[in-house]
Every structure is written in structure tokens, then in C-alpha cells.
């Protein structure tokens, strides 16, 4: 076995371990934002800071993506439960504006819980 072979083997084993951890243990960061409104789902990368305007049944909700997190900035509802939910940072974190029919949730491999009770 040449040195190059050994190097190749090492790289492959490291890749194997990394992928195993990522795909089988479910530990990893959230990497996408899923935004659902009016029956339509759009997916955005968490890596790209931006503000997104979403049209719901009552009007426009503004979603902000910043530093790998996402949140409702404004929404045309009275309770503002969605805005008060604050930043979503982990896979599985979800906020919804029920009156405007908008759901924002983070997806990725890092879901720590199967469901959240509150």
C-alpha cells in the first residue's frame, strides 16, 4: 500500500464516520427554512440572510433569516403570537400565524425532540 493509498483510506474512513454520524444519529444543525402559506410551500437556505414577504389570507407576513435563524418580523394579526415566538434556531422549531395562515419551520438533521408540547 502506497502513502497515497493510506491517505486515501484515511480520507474515506473519515468521510464514512462523518456521514454515519450525520445520517444515522440525527445530530447536526438546522439548514433550511420551510415557509407554508396558502397551501404553497417554499424552502429557503438558512445560510443566506434575507427578508421574505409572504402573502397569507389576511395580508403580508415578513419573515427574516439572519445568522442561521429565522423569525416573523410582522404579520397582519392581532395577537402577534407568531412575532412573540421569536427566533427559531433549531431543526423542528416552528412558528405559525394562524389568522394569516402562514407556517415557518426549520428543517435539518438536528431535531432533538419528535414533538413539542406547550
Amino acid at each position: 500500500m502506497t502513502r497515497a493509498d493510506k491517505a486515501g483510506l484515511t480520507v474515506s474512513l473519515l468521510a464514512l464516520l462523518t456521514l454515519y454520524g450525520y445520517l444515522w444519529t440525527g445530530i447536526g444543525p438546522a439548514n433550511q427554512v420551510t415557509v407554508t402559506a396558502a397551501g404553497e410551500t417554499r424552502v429557503f437556505s438558512l445560510g443566506h440572510d434575507q427578508r421574505i414577504a409572504v402573502s397569507g389570507s389576511r395580508g403580508e407576513s415578513i419573515i427574516e433569516i439572519e445568522q442561521g435563524r429565522a423569525r416573523f418580523v410582522t404579520s397582519p394579526c392581532s395577537g402577534k403570537v407568531c412575532v412573540h415566538t421569536g427566533w427559531l434556531a433549531r431543526a423542528g422549531d416552528t412558528a405559525a400565524c394562524v389568522p394569516n395562515g402562514v407556517i415557518v419551520s426549520l428543517t435539518g438533521h438536528g431535531k432533538q425532540y419528535d414533538s413539542i408540547n406547550f
Binding site: 497515497a4 491517505a7 483510506l9 464514512l16 456521514l19
Partner: peptide, 21 residues
Amino acid sequence: PPRGSLYVNVATLLLITAMLA
């Protein structure tokens, strides 16, 4: 040939890795 063995090894292992995952 021997000179290609590195690539072969890497390709095979990555294939197995991908299949496992």
C-alpha cells in the same frame, strides 16, 4: 495499474459509504 489505485480505493470506499448511508 498501480498509479490509479489511490483513485480506485477512494472511489470504492466512497461508494460503500454512500450505500451505507
